[in-house]
Structures are given as C-alpha cells and as structure tokens.
Design a binder for these strands. Structure first.
Lengths: 261, 261
DNA sequence: CTTGCACCTACAGTAACTGGAGGTTTTATA
DNA sequence: TATAAAACCTCCAGTTACTGTAGGTGCAAG
C-alpha cells in the first residue's frame, strides 16, 4: 500500500523534528528506522506514526524513557485509558503544588502591603510556616481535634492573611516586651490577648486533649513551628507565661500555646 | 543590627534551597558568600536577599547566566514586592500551561469513553490538533473573524469534546466513503452535513473574508490542520467537494473548509 | 568523474542541577 | 581534653533531551 520511504533529511522536514533529534531517538532506541546497506536510515510511514505518538506523549509530559517503554511494549499491561488517568493525576498533583506556591506568594504580598517593609527573619518565619502548614494541620487534627484544625486551617485567604499578621505581631511584641520585665502590666495584656485568641480556636475536645499531650510530642511541635526567638526571648516568654498562668490559672497550659497560633 | 550569619546547612534549611544547589550557585559566581579561613562558606542576610532575587528571576524563566548579569550589574534594584509580583506572574503562566495539558488529557479521556477503543491515528490526530489550537485560533481570528474564533474556540469543555468527536466522525466517514464513488448519494449527504456545520460557525464577515484568503495562506493552513488522509482519500475528498460545489453552489469554497472544522 | 550535498559515527557541550567519593573542619559528648 | 559524629570542603561524574562539530563515507547530477 504505502511503501513511501524517506531519507532522514526528508523525514525531518516532513515531521518538523530536526535531524539530530531523530539521530538521538534512534540512538536511545526510541525510534529505530530500517537501514540501507550503507547504513543510511530509511524512514517509512510506520515510523511517522511512531514519531507522532512520541510527540503526543512527550507533550503530555512523559519522559522519553517512559515513552520508550510504552512504544517498545505496546501490549504493556497499561491501557491507554489507564495511562491517561495516570498522567492526569500527575498533572493534578503538579497543579496543586503550584496553587500552594501561589497561595503563599499572595499571602506574602498581602503581608508586605500591611507592614510596608518586612524584616527578613519575619519573612522567613512566614515562608517556613506556610510551607509546613500541611504538617501542622495534621498535627493539630491528631493531637487536638479535627474541629480545631478546621477552625485554624480551613479558612479563607483573607483569614489566613489575618492569622499571618497576628503571628507576626505576636513575635514582634515578644521581642519588644522582652526588653522589660516578664510580669509587667503590658506583658500581661499581651499574653492575655494571645492566650484568649488561642483558646478561641479550641473546642472542648481540643482543650481536653491539650492537657494530655505527651512530652515526646513537644519536640515534634517545635519542629513544626519555629519562632525566631533567641535564648533570652524564649526564657522571657516562659517566665511571662508562667506568671500569667499562676495569676489567672491555666490548668496545664505551657508556653507552647503561643506557638500554636 | 542583624549580623546574623549561617553556615551553608542552616542557610539551606532557612531558604529551602538544597546545599548542593548553593554550592552550584557559588561555583558559577551567582551567589558567592564570604568564607572562613578554613574555606567554609558564611552566609549573611544580604545573601538571603540575593537568593530571593535569584529565586524570583529564575521562576520567571530567566537563565542563571542572565540572572548573574542582572545581579552583578546592580543597575536597577528590585524591591521584594516587585520580585514577589514577578514570581506570581510566572507561577500563573505555569499553571495556565498545566491547565492546558489537563484540558487535553480530559478531552482525550472523554473521547475514549465515547468511542470505546480509539485507533491510534485517530488518537494522534486529536492530540496534534489540540496542541495546535492556540495557533489555529489565531489563524481563524486573523483570516476569518474574531466572531468565528470565539464560536469555535471559546466554548465549554463539553462542546469541545463534541467538536473533537465530529472531527473524528468526519475523518472516519471520509475513509469509509472513499472506497466508493465521490458523487454517491451517501457522500453528498455527508459533505452536506459538514459543509452546513462549518457554515454555521461563520458569520458574514468570516464568509466575506473566506473567499479572499490568498494562496500563500493555504499552505499555512495545511500546517495548522493535518488530516490523516492518504493520497487516495485526499483526492476523493477533493472530488466529492467539487461535485457538491458544482451541484449546490459554494461560491469560492474549496476543499479547505472541511479542515477548518 | 568530480563536485557537492546528504549522510554516517563519535565525541563534546548545554542547563541546572544531583550524587558520591574522599578528605578536612567543627561541634558535641564522654 | 580526646574522640567521634556531623557538617563541611573539592572534584568528578551523571542526569535529560537535546545540539554542535569534526572527520569521514555514500550518492546523484552535471
């Protein structure tokens, strides 16, 4: 029927794929045309079909190695439908990642707008925490309650920006106030505000669980939320919280709850 | 104020860029931190700012070489806000590309569902045409009318799937009927259906322009839409269209309009 | 029959990492 | 303070999907 054959140059022209690339596909065993006795490659219509498959699959993001497996083993246990579904899943995962990055970017931008100029440690505090949000949510859901996780993480972008802002403000307050006494009136007001804020996120189940968080989990938490505090600031915050707890009562709460914010 | 410095490991952790990549940036002169007497790298906050710029520019698709020129030539300093905005643009572009691939994938899947098993040449006909949609839209908008482009391309996914299906059916009809006479009643009905279908997409402006498409553009069109027809089938389609045109009148239309579908 | 183009292989290079070997420095612990 | 472990160093090699070049062979036309 069609026994049309072409030397590599014509075939390259026909298909729009450069000669060198065809060489490459040949070398790597992806598209091996017949050969003349002289060694010159002879491409036929079947090769054109194969090449079109290659181009198609490549454009869908498959690696050449993957395509070779697909082409050299056409009876492979994977049907076209399955391949398509697989690739779709991969692309969707990639998009989710991208969306996450966009989300972070937008929140950073929003905070910049609010604060004017953001100090660098603040910036990286934000980035780090945003990147860990998934793990944070997991931890909260497991150790406290799904309710609390929802209240903290399943919220609008604006609400997230607001939480970011409060986290920033908290850090800045601690840094500023830690120059003074840990039992100053100002410190008490600050601690009071954030303790109440945190408690607002906790439902009964979470509060019940909160008291029973084992020691090993504290370390885990610290990996999840790291505050840009030096030793002095950390010590001051411990003191201020201890003071607040002894004065107003907090049954089992320790310095960690500030970080849960 | 902040003379915070970090060894490469801490800096990597802070910035999220792997140690080996920082090595790489150092080697190529993109981000050269200070060194200890021992040779260990010391990164400071200024390096953090530089790295931010690098990440921003990189995500916009600049080559590292280009970025190096940009950074070593501190002609215009870019603010963090600008960097962030740039990055956002880049990510949005990436997502658009991803969405396009996903769109194609889903349409392929939908057609598979319809047809049960899709022959490979049909499959790749679809992929090729989907990949060229942007250029096709451009061509239609320029040569025919924006109206027509909208009617053909700015439509829902379901509508696109339906057009894909019709394209497939058209190709299959031609292949089947080209076994018989080009002036058979069946051929006439088929041609009639698709001619009317195509005309349905054209507004007055498009029809006016259609007649005046210069010869050079025909070649261009052929690059944009390629049907998997062999010489016999192509000849048959030419004949069938000529016959139809002579019988029912088509003032200037030639065989191309089938392909515009 | 020779000129010139198409074709061949083989090796090297590209970008932007990434991995590993083999050796030195810093840091934490006994 | 000694030593072990972790972190760091440099250099070389490998990755993907090409792309470039050199030096040589085959083929077709004038």
């Amino acid at each position: 029927m069609d026994k049309e054959t072409y030397p590599i140059g014509k075939f390259a022209e026909l298909s729009g794929i450069p000669v060198r690339t065809l060489h490459h596909y040949d070398e790597m065993g992806l598209l091996r045309p017949r050969r003349q006795a002289s060694g010159h490659r002879i491409y036929g219509t079947d090769d054109l079909i194969t090449l079109q498959k290659i181009i198609g699959l490549k454009s869908l993001g498959f690696s050449l190695e993957r395509i070779r497996q697909f082409i050299n083993n056409p009876k492979s246990d994977m049907s076209l439908a399955e391949t398509l579904d697989m690739q779709k899943q991969a692309l969707e995962a990639a998009r989710a990642k991208l969306d996450k990055s966009l989300d972070i970017l937008e929140r950073m931008r929003a905070n910049l707008q609010h604060e004017g100029e953001l100090e660098h440690d603040m910036m990286f505090l934000l980035i780090r925490n945003m990147l860990r949000e998934d793990k944070q949510r997991e931890w909260v859901a497991e150790q406290l309650s799904e309710q609390t996780a929802m209240a903290l993480f399943d919220i609008s972008k604006d609400a997230k920006v607001e939480l970011d802002r409060e986290l920033l403000a908290f850090v800045q307050s601690v840094k500023r106030l830690s120059m003074g006494a840990s039992d100053s009136a100002e410190a008490e007001v600050m601690i009071d505000f954030y303790v109440k804020r945190v408690l607002g996120f906790l439902d009964d189940e979470a509060i019940a669980n909160f008291v029973h968080i084992p020691k090993e989990q504290h370390e885990h938490l610290e990996q999840l939320v790291d505050m840009p505090f030096d030793d002095r600031e950390t010590a001051w915050l411990d003191e201020a919280l201890a003071h607040y707890a002894s004065k107003y009562g907090l049954h089992g709460m320790d310095q960690k709850e500030g970080e849960v914010l």
